[in-house]
Each structure stands twice: as C-alpha cells, then as structure tokens.
Simulated scan of single mutants.
Amino acid sequence: MEYDMSNWPLAKGVVRAAPMVSTPPSLPTPPPPPVMRARQKTLSIVPTYEHLDPAQLTTDDLRIITQGKVQVASDNTINWRYESRREAQPILDFLYLGPSSVLRDRAFLQREGITLLLAVRDSRMAKVNLMGAERVAGELGIEAESIDVDSNQDLVRWFPVAVEKINGHLLRRYRSQGRAVQAGEGEATTGAPGGGPPPQAPDGSRMVIDSAQFRPAKVLVYCETGNDRSAAVVAAYLVTMFQADVETVCQFIGLQRFCATFDESTAFLLKTYEDIIVARRSVARDAAGHAAGDGAGRSAKRTISQTRGDEDDDLSRAPAHADFDQDRYAGRGQFAPW
C-alpha cells in the first residue's frame, strides 16, 4: 500500500528538503572525483571557439573575454591552509571565487583589481546581504550584481543569467576603454587581447586598445561560504566558455580552491546544464551549415525517406501506397528548440 505523504504536516521549524515522491528512486549521479594531487599537478582548459552559438557570443566577443588564452590551474592544495577558505582564489585570470567575508578585505579587492562583485544568494537573505555589497562597491567605485535563488535545485535556470552578467560586464569594460577606428585608419595601438585581429565595435568599426592604459575587468563570484552555490556558478561558466566537461571543470576549480564542494545534487545540475549547452551548440552548428548550404548542418536524425530505404525497417516493406501519416507533417518547417 502506498501512502501520499506530500501533505503531511511538518513540525515547527522544519523545512522540507525535497518534494515527496512515491516512485522508485533513480540511480544517483556520481559526484566529480576528488582532486588528485599525486597524478595531477596542473590542468588546462581552452576557449571553445568551435561551434560557438552566435546568438550568445560572437568570435570577437569570446576573444575579448578569454583573451584567447589557455587557462592553467596549478595544484594549490600543497600550500592550502584552513584559513584559505576565508579568502578568494583566482580560478581564471579574470574570475575569482570566494566567500562573502572577502568583501571586508577592501585592500584585497583593490590589489586584485576586482571590478564586479557577483553574489549568489539565498533569496531569503537577499535584503540582508544586498546593502553590504552595494556599500563596498560604492566605496571602491565598482559594480555589484546578484543572483537570488530559492534553493540549490533552482540554480540550473540561473546559470545562463550568471554567464550573461559576467560576460556583459567584461565586454562593457573592454569597450569602454577601446577606440573605434574605420578601415584604412592607422592602428598604432594594440588590437585584440591575446593577439588576432582587432574585434569589431557594435557599429561595425574596429576596436583598438592602448595596452599601456588598458585595465582588464575582473569578477568575484561569491556566496556565504564560497564553496557551494558560487562554486557551481563558476563551474557552469567554465562549461559554457571552455572546451571542458563537468568533471574537468570541477577538478580545475578544486585544484585552486580546495574547499569547493560538488555533491551529488550539484553534479546532477551541472550535468543537466552541460547537456543543454551541448544541444544548443549542435543546433547552432546545424543552422550555420544550412545557411552555408554545404550540407554540414544536416540533422543526425533520419528522415522518413531515409527510414523507408532501411531494409531492416518495417516501413520499407510496407505497400508503396501507404501514406505513413504524411498529412501530419505537411508544411512543417525546420524546428530549433533554442
């Protein structure tokens, strides 16, 4: 006999951790393996220029943000101290991860050149924490943003928002320091960071930067501990921007912030997000192939005509006059879910 316990009253002060279900439990998603100090002293990731989704970022945008650099994580666990968990560590050249207590260290924020404070907060604590971050940002003349989540399970829908906030800030800071030049004008200053041609400005002109005056943007992502919600956001950012899977980015973060935790629930959310990113890139690749007319965008799914030619398929042995429910598909165009 099954009992529906979803409406059972809870004791005072008790919060339901997850919805009650009566179905058999699914297989757990294994968490990323722990950081391997003996075999893995460094780990590198590279920007993902291949199959870039033009609806999200252009190649120029990605070059500006990542500077075209390979990011290398060195094993920081050798020198790790208990007090290190109260500090922030650079995960990328431009992205830091740490606890909210770092906001009290004005000297650190100024020394590292932090230009954006991005909080990943429990929505119930939003009003309490907001004023502190805004006050610090106002004192230092930098920006402050926040992402308020109801629970850790709610994080997956906020990952794209976090990526957009980080990238938007980096691009604005770069363009605010750039100078637009028209074709044929002398370009004595440097072009894109990390080499390559100068990126385009929104109006189509080329952007050049004075390397002597350029001050790159840097983002600090933080939560109460710097180990769970903010670590998950940083991992999602790396999955989006670099050629790395969830396991690799979790290892990459763990080498630099040893106390960052990715439990079974977080690993499942990140894997779900990774699947969405892979699907989105596939759709972008197919769309680009169709636009180019070179056949590169052909869908991997077989059409009904291809199915008819399959000797192992029942459709190929059906009478020639069978319509196979064709009317339902008449006039249906290409469909892209994103």
Rank of each mutant, 00 (worst) to 15 (best):
P54Q: 04
P54S: 05
T42S: 13
P34C: 02
S44D: 14
V46S: 14
P33F: 02
P34M: 01
R39L: 11
I65C: 04
A55R: 09
Q40C: 13
A55E: 15
L52D: 13
V46I: 11
R63N: 10
Y49T: 11
V35Y: 08
H51I: 01
D61I: 01
R37N: 13
T29N: 12
D53V: 05
L57K: 01
L43S: 05
P47A: 07
Q56C: 09
L62M: 11
A38R: 10
I65L: 05
A55Y: 06
M36V: 07
P34H: 01
D61E: 06
T59V: 13
T29S: 13
R37I: 13
T29A: 10
L43D: 06
P32Q: 02
P31K: 00
P34A: 08
I45K: 01
L52N: 14
I64A: 05
T29Q: 14
I65S: 05
V35S: 08
P34D: 13
V35E: 02
A55K: 06
P47S: 03
P30Y: 00
R39K: 09
T29G: 07
P33Q: 09
T59E: 15
M36S: 14
T58K: 03
Y49G: 12
L62H: 04
P31Q: 06
R63H: 11
R63Y: 00
I65K: 00
P30D: 12
T48C: 11
A55G: 15
T66P: 10
T58E: 10
P34F: 03
V46E: 15
Q40F: 01
P33E: 14
T59R: 02
T59S: 12
T29P: 07
T59L: 08
A38E: 15
V35P: 01
M36C: 13
K41P: 12
T66M: 03
A38S: 14
H51W: 14
L62C: 06
P31M: 03
P31H: 05
H51C: 12
I65H: 02
V46W: 10
Y49I: 04
P30A: 11
P33G: 09
P33L: 11
L43W: 05
D61W: 00
P47Q: 03
P32Y: 01
P47K: 00
I45E: 09
S44F: 03
H51D: 15
Y49H: 15
A38L: 11
E50D: 15
M36T: 04
L62F: 00
T58F: 00
T59Q: 13
T42V: 10
